[in-house]
Amino acid sequence: MGGLPAGKVEPTEHDYGEWERRVDALMVLLSGGKGGKRLMTVDELRKNIEALPPDAYDRMGYYDRWVTSITQIMIQRGVITTEELGLKMAEIENRGQSPISAKAS
């Protein structure tokens, strides 16, 4: 997007939520940092963000895009399956917030 016409820069700040910080931590660990297993590269992270639909940049937050990309990579690499993810998401939605995630959020 370098050099394309765009609007005034609004010096906006955003205090990151705990879940966003955990997405950041997952990226570090899955990239092999801090004793994590190297299961992705930052280039894959970027590639999968670029692959999002054109309006994703306006519609999604920064860590929305990251968590989507990281999850895609884990599926592409066979670390998790789409089916497992679907079941897990349904389970958590039904569960409401677990005590652990409520505490950590």
């Binding site: 955990r22 899955l30 670390v79 998790i80 497992e84 993810l85 958590i92 939605e93």
Partner: peptide
């Protein structure tokens, strides 16, 4: 949860269950 928060919790729990993190 927002959809993406749900994704974070789900991904993380799966990775923990599999012993990855």
């Amino acid at each position: 949860y927002s959809y993406f928060q749900l994704m974070e919790v789900s991904l993380r729990e799966l990775l923990v269950e599999k012993g990855i993190v």
